[in-house]
């Protein structure tokens, strides 16, 4: 029988993939909580999906602990947690500012660890739940002038794979999604002569929903999604 999740927490929420995930989950009858550094931008999405928004800096231990306490008190204990946060910065090696690189690692990778730890704390006693991580091309390919993002995304993938092995026997489905391409969003659309050359966030959300419905006899730990223009 497929797992059924009742309460989802999406950490790292904005207008693109996270919004499509929130809409999809809400449509499937899942209660949704959204966490972001800036929650003002989430008001419209909350109205549309009935989600609740919580302010949180995912790279800070105390902030993540507080987030889980607030979400549990005000919405419920999440049995599905999606880590979607990242900090994007790029540049040639000698131009990079070390503090920016540290922030990329903190938000993109260490925050994933903090959130997974709190998620597992809530899920393990019940022996039920799922933790999903959003990866990127940089999860498996380190591009030139993209060292901060590549370091963070490689690390997040390592966390996800290690946790999938550790937590699957304890009833928790861990899945990593390699989003290998640009995601379409309201401020970024593909040129008209190359239709569907960017990933449709609703199509990505369909894949999350499919994987997260899998029965535990046939769990996926990693999925790669790419539009037709991407080479691999």
């Amino acid at each position: 029988m497929a797992a059924e999740y009742k309460m989802a927490l999406i950490v790292g929420s904005g207008g693109g993939l996270s919004a499509a995930l929130a809409r999809r989950l809400a449509r499937d009858g899942v209660k949704v909580a959204l966490a972001a550094r800036n929650t003002e931008k989430l008001a419209e999405l909350c109205r549309e999906t009935g989600a609740r928004a919580f302010a949180c800096d995912a790279g800070e231990e105390a902030a993540v602990k507080r987030l889980f306490a607030e979400v549990t008190r005000e919405v419920g204990s999440p049995d599905l947690v999606i880590y979607n946060a990242s900090y994007r910065t790029r540049g040639a090696l000698l131009s990079l500012v070390p503090n920016d690189v540290a922030l990329a690692l903190k938000t993109g990778a260490f925050g994933g660890f903090l959130v997974a730890q709190e998620a597992a704390r809530a899920m393990l006693p019940k022996g039920h739940g799922a933790i999903a991580f959003t990866g990127a091309s940089a999860s498996i390919k380190g591009y030139a002038e993209s060292t901060p993002f590549a370091m963070a995304k490689f690390a997040l993938r390592g966390l996800a794979q290690s946790l999938a092995r550790e937590l699957a026997p304890q009833g928790i489905h861990v899945a990593h999604f390699v989003i290998d391409g640009q995601i379409r969003n309201p401020g970024r659309i593909e040129p008209p002569e190359r239709p569907d050359s960017m990933l449709d966030p609703a199509a990505i959300a369909d894949s999350y929903a499919y994987v997260l419905r899998q029965p535990k006899s046939a769990w996926t730990w990693e999925v790669e999604l790419r539009p037709w223009v991407e080479k691999f």
Binding site: A92, Y143, A144, E145
Partner: peptide, 13 residues
């Protein structure tokens, strides 16, 4: 005018 951007992997290079 219209400005078109070429997508390059390593912009600084």
């Amino acid at each position: 005018m219209w400005t078109r951007y070429w997508d390059v992997d390593a912009g600084d290079a």
